[in-house]
Design a protein around this nucleic acid. Structure first.
Length: 889
RNA sequence: GCGGGCGUGGCGGAACUGGUAGACGCGCGGGAUUUAGGUUCCCGUGACGAAAGUCGUGGGGGUUCAAGUCCCUCCGCCCGCACCA
């Protein structure tokens, strides 16, 4: 019964055409069934898809196909994150228009993606560089401007000297541009910002509602928002006439340690520092030196805490006789709090180091709880502390602090707050409570061509004038040149010259474009009505959103996901939708990694260039072309530089999309990295062929199996019953595991069922000449059909081919998910492991309904148990129903 | 430094709220089919042991009839953030 091999190259396009022809993945907004929105992070059109895309989109497709089979109206769209610098770089290098380059890439990648057999609604496809999309984005911007969520300010920006553009804080990594890797400079520019900080608290608090997000991502966002509760405290400058300007305001989260203060420190960028430096040469030099020190991680790590005594003195708020020196210090950031701090060396490590260096007092004001009320121990602790070289930063009770003595840290914070709020300094309260966030407003201006133009006009009379809706879109010109650095829009001879919409005077267009993170902050909403003349159709967006399952890489844990959360709120305020959170379920998948291969000369060899052989249990690599030995290196993320990439198209050409999909889902848990191996792919392909062979063999035995759609007999032989149980149990397990996105376990369950079917098939084949067990034939057909249906979300083409081979006319893709026969999940007899003193000594097979007493006596009657007991009487017998029996001596 | 995650055979990994550790796959060994290789099918595969059995989830300790799972402690690896007052 030699069956032909399954030919994916022939079968896969045929089924893809069948699905396309019936338009079964095109989703209607007016479909009354419950909705389910699955989305994978859309790709940047770099030109070729990579294995990371294959993994990402396969996972999403499994969920989409499964939920469709479960009766949901599934939205599963695809688009392109198409603006951005690489298109301009290509323009400069290859003298090709960014537009042409981008759309060519999209066409190539779309064709590649389509070979994967994804159940995507391609009718909703768009690219963010489509005029139709960025036009609506300009509308969103104008609405946000009106709502006060977009504004312009002059600010110090991160300037990337290589890409010649401004970067968001989030795009600066260790002081370098996230794309170019160039050391970032600080420049003063007028920039557009989105007021994301208006939602600091909201974005933080709502993280608690995102219970289907990875804890890790929520934590990263929490840290990024960086809430801290503290106080602003004003210190009066000594020997100056009282006046509001004669105070320095600091931010602190430890007002309880105020009596331990021994100095104030202000940032080199603090206005006061600048003022003082005007007639203090030494200070001016010090500030200049601070600016020279890098902001990279190493620089900060190794930088010494340095300060410069300004000569100013301030008055301690509670001890008018104590004057504290004011330093300019290199470790105080102007961007955080007020740009000034009070130093409490005893309870802050940085302040401690600073005090040691400049010989300032170190006054302990918090004592550990366990020594606080024991005089001798407290004295000993104080001595030990004085002899040590570390600040005490843990909890405790207050000492050396007049009215605070004996209070807990929390009580002391409250007491200080009340005093300072009541106290007055120069006509204002001396202190006030303040919640501070690390989150900054989002700078979106980019001095770049290939992005969404910011739709405003600068009029000499009226200043910034929004482009009226009737004049939208502000269209990117095609005739731009890239022969000099800087922004081509700015260089364009005519584009920026326009009349003011208010007075008609000659004015200039804004030539900055938006950060591409803006484009990806609302695309999920646009998919719900991709052809609408407005950014969204509110009722439609509200019906579809939030995205039920969003899948993508962990690298977007902060930027993209936080911006999208902000946009959902901004779009609610401006009337485009009314959901707060864009993604109710988030899954972050692991990377695809591969071995690296290095030649003797140090160059990298690609997997396609080497042959792996087994040499006495050790894997060795040789170069295909020359036979030279190649060193097998570390397993790393697939990258062009290490040349350890595998092209999805090569794999699909060789093995078919189903094999690639199946391998991506097997073995590794989806949140972890998956190691791409030739052996693994071959194994996946072996399984594809095995399933096909089984189906073909079964089809050949046609008569024994009954026909497609034929109902099952009433009675089953024990063999048939066992197979039915295995099939329905597998179905239940696969369903549970797909729901939990535990695809690797679902795959294992499918393998198990396949093994069971293989055994049953062999049994039936043996009966060829003997008496036929017709009920086994029927059970086999049922099991095979269930197998096909449960693997269909993962290997959709193979499933269709198999289903057709069994005589079905219908597509698997349009069939409802099979019903589990619950009665088959219940065992009538069960096998319990039996332990003696916690070690397994035997097994007991007994009716499921047996009483505890029956089980006990049956257990004690087992030979293996009697032998293990050696004639001794058990002390007790623990019976855990349906699980285990433990006989205790 | 702060925060989080992880540690199970040769490898990737299973193991529900404590209840048969190693499902499933890869690799490896043996056998059958084949002119041969490959393919395919069958059997075996945690370690030690002839066997009975003993040991075994990073190390050590604890709770429990029972621990990969809970508690304490130590070690190692990975990731994120980081002069945030």
């Amino acid at each position: 019964m030699a069956a032909d091999r399954y030919q994916p190259r022939e079968a896969e396009p045929r089924w893809q055409a069948a699905w396309a022809e019936k338009q079964i993945f095109e989703t209607r907004n007016d479909d009354p069934r419950p909705k389910y929105y699955v989305l994978e992070m859309f790709p940047y059109p770099s030109g070729r898809i990579h294995m990371g895309h294959v993994r990402n989109y396969t996972m999403g497709d499994v969920v989409a196909r499964y939920m469709r089979a479960k009766g949901y109206n599934v939205l599963h769209p695809m688009g392109w994150d198409a603006f951005g610098l690489p298109a301009e770089n290509a323009a400069m290098q290859n003298r090709i228009q960014p537009r042409t380059w981008t759309y060519d890439n999209i066409a190539a990648m779309r064709a590649q993606l389509k070979t994967m057999g994804l159940s995507i609604d391609w009718s909703r496809e768009f690219a963010t560089c489509d005029l139709d999309y960025y036009w609506r984005q300009q509308k969103l911007f104008l609405d946000m401007l009106k709502a006060g969520l977009a504004y312009r300010k002059s600010s110090k920006v991160n300037w990337d000297p290589v890409d010649q553009t401004v970067l968001a804080n989030e795009q600066v990594i260790d002081g370098r541009g996230w794309r170019s890797g160039a050391v970032v400079e600080q420049r003063e520019l007028t920039q557009w910002f989105f007021r994301i900080t208006a939602y600091s608290e909201e974005l933080l608090a709502a993280l608690d509602t995102l219970d289907r997000w990875p804890e890790k991502v929520r934590l990263m966002q929490r840290n990024w928002i960086g809430k801290s509760e503290g106080m602003r405290v004003r210190f009066a400058i000594a020997d100056e006439p009282p006046g509001v300007d004669q105070a320095i305001e600091v931010f602190t989260t430890r007002p309880d340690t105020l009596f331990g203060a021994s100095f104030l420190a202000i940032s080199p960028d603090h206005p006061l520092a600048g003022g003082l430096a005007a007639d203090n040469r030494g200070l001016a030099d010090f500030i200049a030196e601070c600016h020279r020190t890098g902001t990279s991680a190493e620089a900060i790590e190794t930088a010494e805490k340095k300060g410069f005594d300004t000569g100013l003195r301030v008055v301690h708020p509670f001890r008018k006789d104590v004057a504290l020196p004011v330093y300019v210090a290199n470790f105080v950031l102007m961007e955080y709090g007020t740009g000034a701090i009070f130093g409490c060396p005893a309870h802050d490590q940085r302040d401690y180091e600073f005090a040691r260096k400049y010989d300032l007092p170190i006054i302990p004001v918090v004592a550990p709880l366990d020594v606080f009320d024991k005089d001798e121990e407290l004295v000993a602790w104080l001595e030990q502390f004085a002899a040590g070289n570390e600040a005490y930063v843990d909890d405790g009770r207050i000492i050396n602090s007049e009215f605070l003595d004996g209070l807990t840290v929390a009580e002391a914070k409250e007491a200080v707050a009340q005093r300072l709020e009541a106290a007055s300094l120069c006509g204002a309260p001396q202190g006030r409570r303040q919640v501070n966030y690390r989150l900054r407003d989002w700078g979106i201006s980019r001095q770049r061509y290939w992005g969404c133009p910011i739709p405003v006009i600068h009029c000499p009379t009226h200043g910034v004038v929004p482009v009226p809706d009737r004049d939208l879109p502000v269209k990117l010109p095609d005739d731009v040149s890239f022969d000099r650095p800087g922004n081509p829009l700015d260089h364009h001879p005519t584009w920026k010259h326009v009349a003011c919409p208010i007075c008609g005077a000659a004015s200039l267009r804004e030539t900055d474009t938006m950060d591409t993170f803006v484009d990806s902050s609302w695309y999920f909403a646009r998919f719900t009505a991709p052809d609408a003349a407005t950014p969204t159709v509110k009722e439609v967006a509200d019906r579809w959103l939030p995205v039920d399952q969003y899948i993508g890489g962990i690298e977007h844990a902060i930027l993209h996901l936080l911006y999208s959360r902000f946009f959902a709120r901004a779009m609610s305020v401006t009337g485009h939708l009314s959901v707060a959170e864009p993604f109710s379920g988030l899954f972050t998948q692991g990377m695809v990694v591969h071995e690296t291969y290095r030649r003797a000369d140090g160059s990298w060899a690609s997997p396609a260039e080497v042959t792996i052989a087994d040499d006495g249990g050790k894997r060795v690599a040789t170069e295909k072309a020359t036979g030279d030995p190649v060193e097998i290196g570390a397993i790393e993320k697939m990258s062009k530089s290490k040349r350890n990439t595998v092209d999805p198209t090569d794999i699909i050409d060789t093995y078919g999309a189903d094999t690639a999909r199946w391998f991506m889902l097997s073995d590794s848990p989806p949140e972890r990295d998956v190691i791409w191996t030739e052996e693994g792919v071959a194994g996946a392909h072996r399984f594809v062929q095995r399933v096909w062979r089984m189906v073909a063999d079964a089809a050949e035995m046609g008569l024994k199996l009954g026909r497609a759609g034929e109902s099952l007999p009433n009675a089953f032989s024990p063999d048939a019953m066992a197979l039915r149980k295995a099939a329905h149990r597998a179905l239940a397990a696969v369903e549970d595991n797909i729901r939990a996105l535990r695809f690797n376990v679902a795959v294992a369950r499918i393998y198990e069922l396949t093994n069971a079917i293989g055994a049953a098939l062999a049994l039936l084949d043996k009966q060829r000449n003997d008496g036929l067990d017709h009920s086994l034939g029927a059970a086999l057909r049922e099991a095979l059909e269930l197998l096909i249906e449960m693997m269909a979300p993962m290997m959709p083409h193979l499933a269709e081919e198999c289903f057709a081979a069994l005589g079905h006319k219908e597509l698997v893709a349009t069939r409802p998910w099979p019903q589990i026969e619950r009665s088959l999940l219940v065992e009538d007899t069960i096998t319990l492991p039996v332990q003696v003193n916690g070690k397994k000594r035997g097994e007991l097979t007994i009716p499921a309904g047996a009483s505890e007493a029956d089980i006990q006596s049956a257990v004690l009657g087992l030979d293996t148990i009697r032998r293990a007991l050696g004639g001794k009487a058990p002390r007790k017998v623990v019976v855990v129903p349906k699980r285990i029996v433990n006989v205790v001596l």
